[in-house]
Amino acid sequence: MRRVILYEGFERFWHWSQALLIITMMLTGFEIRGMGLHLFGFQRAVSLHNILAVALVVLIVFAIFWHVTTGEWRQYIPTRKFLREMIAFYLTGIFKGAPHPVKKHRMAKLNPLQRLAYLGFKTLIIPVQVTTGALYYYYPNLQHALHWPASSLWLIAIVHVLSAFGLVAFLIGHAYLTTTGHTPLTNLKAMITGWEDLKDDAYLDEP
């Protein structure tokens, strides 16, 4: 057993501020949509949603820079290795107390399912949200300048909202799966403190 830093300072800052931003944007977004939330009031919800959107984009720019410069982007390269085993683990093994099929490593801290999920999150859901959000915000200008038909805002809104629902589902699954670590709180603690006890020393010696 060895204690290692699994998540660096910036990574944790990025993760938690992104979480806070996205959750607040979910709340404001669904209030704007009229889903029965009355937290901020419509006008303030709209302003907050837009301000947070800019903040999120800034954060993402920094995160991209960090991923590129540290090489951490490699963590998200999808792999089929152990994919089947991971699925089997979640479907059956976990109930029997079977060991986790993939060992964590400082340079391979994500299992193949996580890689797929986070890659999808980063390259699909977030870009879709950012793009449709920007189109939504600038729709009056675009409509005016490019003579977009009235139905285009409808389309933009549908994609933006469906993707937002997807984000909520993602958040639920994500939060639950953090409890599947060594103990239910192991993963959460690691994301807060950065440290995690890694069991298998053999992996740690890999370069």
Partner: peptide, 8 residues
């Protein structure tokens, strides 16, 4: 036209 909040 699509009116946010109305045409959900």
């Amino acid at each position: 036209f699509y009116l946010p909040g109305r045409d959900r």
